[in-house]
């Protein structure tokens, strides 16, 4: 479903991803782990289409379509969702208004009718309840004044409502206490479906105790250095990146 081949990306002329290859099939959950500065967030942003990243080589295909040729909104409409590490606060834009706009923009692109207001609210409330998001938070402006945990829950709420084909979680565990981590992980697990793929980008193994991946990749110095099952994540936790990859590669 997602095929990344020999992806090379520079930021301000400096190579960050140096030939990254990865295949994620439908229904699979892949984790990408790596030390700081290995290129994890670059990967997430490039997949979502953020400015400031120069793709100097390689391809990314989603269901055979050239993802890199699409604008960010076209990727979203094609089913890509990035749960951001630092969701932006946008005072003045109501959370629910925004979410409905987003859903309808995506539905419109798919030639589906707009979601009726009542059904939208029913679904939002249901998802919010599952994620432990209070009614008050729904009424606030988008992420404005939200705590770190509230922002991450709000990202998962958006993910649940937008029903992506490919969900990318960029360090969703950062800044979460253990209860919030569990709630967020449960939220993700509920969304696992045979036709939906997940790319979970994380620094720590902790999140993977709750979102159990099918495949774990270790990213270091802009390339996938090692791939394996969930046991690879545990090995990283015990031995560290240096222990698993050797000091040279982990640098």
């Amino acid at each position: 479903m997602l095929e990344i081949a020999d992806l090379q990306v520079s930021v301000a002329g400096k190579p960050i991803l140096k030939g990254l290859s990865l295949r994620v099939g439908p229904g699979e959950v892949h984790a990408v782990m790596g030390p700081n500065g290995s290129g994890k967030s670059t990967l997430a942003h490039v997949l979502a289409g953020r400015d400031g990243y120069e793709v100097t080589g390689g391809t990314v295909r989603l269901d055979g379509e050239d993802l890199l040729a699409l604008e960010p909104e076209e990727r979203a409409r094609a089913g890509v969702f990035l749960a951001m590490q630092y969701p932006v606060e946008i005072p003045g834009v109501a959370n629910m208004y925004f979410l409905r706009q987003a859903i309808n923009a995506i539905r419109k692109a798919r030639e589906q009718p707009e979601v009726p207001a009542a059904e939208f609210m029913r679904r939002v409330r249901e998802q919010a309840r599952l994620l432990g998001i209070g009614e008050e938070l729904l009424k606030r402006d988008l992420n404005a004044g939200f705590s770190g945990g509230e922002k991450k829950r709000n990202e998962i709420l958006q993910m649940a409502m937008l029903e992506p084909r490919l969900a990318i979680l960029d360090e969703t565990d950062s800044g979460l206490d253990i209860d919030a981590l569990k709630t967020v992980a449960d939220g993700v697990n509920r969304l696992r479906r045979p036709d939906r793929a997940f790319l979970v980008i994380t620094h720590y193994q902790r999140l993977l105790d709750y979102i159990v991946p099918d495949v774990v990749h270790v990213l270091a110095d802009g390339q996938i250095r090692r791939s394996g099952g969930p046991e690879l994540a545990r090995a990283l936790e015990e031995q560290g990146y240096e222990g698993v990859l050797g000091a040279r590669l982990a640098a």
Binding site: E73, A76, L82, F98
Partner: peptide, 9 residues
Amino acid sequence: FYLRARGLA
């Protein structure tokens, strides 16, 4: 970018 990444033109 945040808004576009959610599908808004």
